[in-house]
């Protein structure tokens, strides 16, 4: 198992290196630089600034300097917000995104799994049909439509919530709803289809024959197997949600990471582009790594021995 996980870790480091390199050169290949603007800075001043950031050096040298700093975990200063380090921008905005993201994940899993199970238990009945109808809506309607709609009806028309901002705990409600509709729908459908399969399998019949209570059958034997695909989905979904949604952040005026990501590219804020890309990749890979680990515990069929993976 150590070898299995160690191998995965080496894989992650290697992937990150390739990703950082590719991003670096792609980013430099895009026309424009952080200091191009409508009212041009006099060329002498601009040359001075470019030299300050080392942007006058050949690109290979710039790359080596950046990688050397990266290995020491130094992401440098933002080129747009001159007084702030990339690390502080990421940590502050990630805090906001992660908080809302965490709410959304917890709610998605609870409601999604519950809906999916209910639908499976009442297969082809009203509950099932209603739940799956809602799920189709949740999957097909994009979150910016849902976000704008709940904002318009609940904030502008009924004035129950603030339109935007994060002043009080109540302000977390709308963004959380907007973020969780898609995962709820997706999880509900996943859970339903696996549960349907699980509930007709032999060991459930055995359990029934043993005389276990329906509750024990459902929770101990049904759910444990039924939730496997959800766990798989949870990894990338977590990475996706906690790193911030550009659209939802924009609608609700949230200081999250998603907005910075888009802005950094628009501004050609080189250090910030690199920082956020690498950070995002780390989160995504970490989430997948954790999923792999969780799998070992949830799925008894995955047995690791002698470095050979059997699944």
């Amino acid at each position: 198992m150590v070898r299995y996980l160690g191998g995965k870790l080496i894989n992650i480091v290697f992937s990150l290196l390739i990703l950082a390199t590719a991003t670096f050169f792609l980013m430099k290949a895009v026309p424009g630089d952080p200091f191009t603007q409508e009212k041009a800075i006099p060329p002498e001043i601009k040359a001075n600034i470019m030299a300050h950031y080392g942007l006058d050096k050949p690109i290979g040298e710039q790359y080596l300097i950046y990688m050397k700093k990266l290995v020491q975990f130094d992401l440098g200063l933002s080129m747009k917000s001159q007084d702030r380090t990339v690390t502080s921008i990421i940590s502050q905005s990630f805090g906001t995104s992660a908080k809302i993201g965490a709410f959304a994940i917890v709610i998605s899993v609870i409601i999604g799994v519950y809906l999916g199970m209910m639908a499976a238990l009442r297969h082809r009945k009203l509950v099932d049909n209603t739940a799956m109808f809602l799920a189709v809506i949740g999957i097909s309607v994009p979150n910016f439509v849902i976000g704008s709609m709940i904002q318009y009806f609940l904030s502008v028309k009924l004035q129950i919530f603030h339109v935007a901002g994060l002043e009080s705990p109540i302000d977390y409600v709308l963004p959380t709803i907007a973020l969780s509709t898609l995962p709820i729908a997706f999880i509900a459908r996943l859970t339903r289809s696996t549960m349907l399969e699980v509930l007709t399998s032999d060991y459930i019949r055995t359990a029934k024959a043993k005389g276990l209570t329906p509750r024990a059958i459902l929770w101990q034997h049904g759910l444990r197997n039924g939730i496997l695909p959800v766990v798989t989905y949870l990894g990338p979904m977590t990475a996706n949600i906690i790193t911030g949604s550009v659209v939802v952040e924009q609608i609700f005026g949230l200081p999250g990471l998603g907005a910075y990501f888009v802005d950094s590219v628009m501004n050609r804020d080189y250090t910030l582009i690199m920082g956020i890309t690498i950070f995002y990749a780390v989160i995504l890979m970490a989430a997948r790594f954790i999923t792999d680990v969780l799998y070992i515990f949830v799925d008894p069929r995955i047995k690791l021995s002698g470095g050979v993976v059997k699944s």
Binding site: A164, F252, G253
Partner: peptide, 18 residues
């Protein structure tokens, strides 16, 4: 001073007194 990017959100905030 708030930092809200979306003009529609800004407009709604103005209308609702934020």
């Amino acid at each position: 001073f708030l930092m809200v990017k979306d003009p529609n959100t800004e407009f709604s905030m103005y209308k609702t007194g934020q």
